[in-house]
Amino acid sequence: MNSNQPMLSRVADSLFWMSRYLERAENTSRQLDVYLNLNIDIASSMEEQRRLNRLIDSLTLPPEDMPQDHPLFTLTFDISNASSIIALITGARENARQVREQLSSEMWMQINKLHLHLRSTVVDSVWEAFPHDYYLQVRDGSHLFQGITDATMNHNQGWHFIQLGRFIERSIALLNLLDVHFDNEHLKRGEEISTLRYFELIGTLKSVTAFEAYTKVYSANVQSSWIIEFLLFNREFPRSLRFCVEAIQSSLNALEEMSDRARNSRLYRLAGRLQSQLSYDEIEDIHSLHDYLDNIKQQIYRIHDNLYHTYITYPIETAL
């Protein structure tokens, strides 16, 4: 039998978005959780407001999803808000449902159970109690799904589209987070860290579950420039930009081989260029943090567009 089974473009599309939605739900829940935690530690309504603004900016909500009255509640439970955690999990599950014969039964069971569980949670009681457990369930559910995916699904084209969805979403979320929390000031070494700033920085690290990983490399000494360096260029931390881009590149290479067709090579050039940039750049090379982050974001968008053009929305005449 041919081991390189063809895969429907529509299926690739659904797997990709299933994975992006799930990653986004996980990311959102982590950021909301950190925000609530920080508010417990440092109760100052002015700080809280600023922090909330940063949170909203970093999630880069489209205008129609901008929450009005109860931002946290809305972003967690409001199914009519497409950026809420519950809507994102529903979106992931809906995409999974459309391609469920492509998933292992275990994967489908997990995402279906997660969805049913979150949908049936009694909202008010969770909210009164403290929603930390709820956010934890989202993250655990997402982690479990990823583990089940790796352990039970063939690592075929579909698996690589799942990887691409996850790592493209993750790298864009990270770039947004860095953009909101840091500016050129923070590129300098030898920063004085106030208590408030310390909590904020720890919060930023925890937003991408990087605190422990960071201390293993830089010790518990927290510095903005080191955090930026760590999150952009560390090769081993699975949520650093460099790690994400290497994962993207390796899945693209695998796809090229599995879909066994000579393709326009632009997609692979784009990914290769970005990957090598991130392996050689140093924090000293960055003059304007915002421009640097934005440039990388544009490169990732181009990779995304080319990915779609190559595998999913290609014109028929190029494929006969």
């Binding site: 063809p6 895969m7 429907l8």
Partner: peptide
């Protein structure tokens, strides 16, 4: 076997093809 929808298929020259990541099949 593949589960397809109408939008995954197209007819060209009297043959039916499905749109896959490896091109038309």
């Amino acid at each position: 076997i593949q589960l397809v929808e109408g939008r995954d298929l197209l007819v060209h020259d009297g043959y039916v093809y499905m749109r896959t990541t490896s091109g038309l099949k």
